[in-house]
Amino acid sequence: MSPNPQQRRAARHRLGTDQDAPAARRGPSGGRKKPITVDAIVSTAFGIVEREGYPALTMRRVAAVLETGPSSLYAHVVNKEDLDELLIGRLCAEIELPEPDPTAWRQQIAGVCTQLRDQYLRYPGITQASFAAAPSNLDTLRVGEGMLAILLAGGVQPQAAAWAIDSLSLYVNAYCLEHSMARGRLQDGGEGWVLSRAELLRRFAALPDSYPQTKRYAAELTAGTVHDRFDFTLGLMVDGLPRSGAADT
């Protein structure tokens, strides 16, 4: 008897491999179409997100692109949440993890977060797939393992390191989600909601005198690129981690 989707999911988590056997197409066009596999479903889902954004991703939409019915997908993935897990796992599989270096741990952890950011920004809104989900995919856990090893090598206390992984991941996810939302508003003609720096400076200058600090420091409030702010926030988070008697490096 062929394994059901739940068994396939369990096998992926234990072995880190896709044990999915391709399903033969039925009907007169069956021989002309590629078989349905987990890999085909995931690749199709990424294409939808890249073109249309994450909110457009549904099991029915994936099935339509693959020219099949939703029931064909459920022979391979458990549900939409399982597909979300596979998407994030595929992106995490492409993250390069350095050998932990106690003398460069800050740069290393920032580098991993930057890789995650750049992966997520390729697919608008994809980080929504990771919210409120405990990591169980082995590729996702591999990144967490690497981040934990880097922080521990830097002398960060184990409990702080464990919570820092969650905090850093949450910040990267939120940053990428905001970035994709702003980009989506621009694409939808919402220039009035995504303001340029010049427009922000003009609005701040026009504020009443009851906002003295905002008027005085308008240049600072609007300075830098979004990635400058990303790097600044990561630095704040990492530098604030408690460390256990290691020399400050």
Rank of each mutant, 00 (worst) to 15 (best):
R90F: 09
S71A: 13
E85Q: 08
S180D: 09
T114R: 15
N173K: 15
I165V: 14
A218H: 09
H179C: 12
D209Q: 12
R25M: 05
L207V: 09
I95M: 09
Y123L: 04
S167R: 15
L201G: 07
F232M: 06
Q6P: 01
L15W: 15
R229Y: 07
T214F: 03
L87D: 01
I95C: 06
C176V: 08
P212G: 08
E85L: 07
S72T: 09
A161P: 05
A219S: 12
I109R: 10
L170M: 10
D239G: 07
K80Q: 11
T58E: 00
G144N: 13
V42W: 02
R243P: 01
P55M: 03
L148H: 06
L234F: 05
V49I: 13
I41S: 04
T233Q: 07
R229P: 01
M237H: 06
G53I: 00
A132M: 13
K33L: 15
G27E: 05
N173C: 09
R32S: 04
A93E: 10
N79K: 11
R60F: 05
R202L: 11
M237E: 04
L151I: 11
R60H: 00
R8G: 10
A104P: 08
R183K: 12
G224W: 09
P35L: 00
R9Y: 14
R9C: 09
A63L: 00
K215S: 06
S196V: 10
A45N: 04
A10F: 05
L83S: 01
A162S: 14
G125H: 04
R61C: 02
G69K: 09
P28Y: 03
L221R: 14
S29L: 15
A10R: 11
L148E: 05
C113R: 07
L221P: 07
V38W: 01
A63E: 00
Q19Y: 13
L186P: 02
W163K: 11
I88Y: 02
L66N: 01
I150Y: 05
L168H: 03
N79F: 06
P28L: 08
L234W: 03
P212C: 03
T140H: 08
L83T: 07
Q213A: 12
L195K: 15
A162E: 08
R122T: 11
L121K: 11
D18V: 14
G31F: 00
Y74A: 02
A40D: 04
S136I: 14
A164K: 09
Y175H: 12
L121F: 05
T58D: 04
G53R: 00
P100Y: 07
V77Y: 01
Q119Y: 04
G125L: 06
R9I: 14
G184K: 06
G245Y: 06
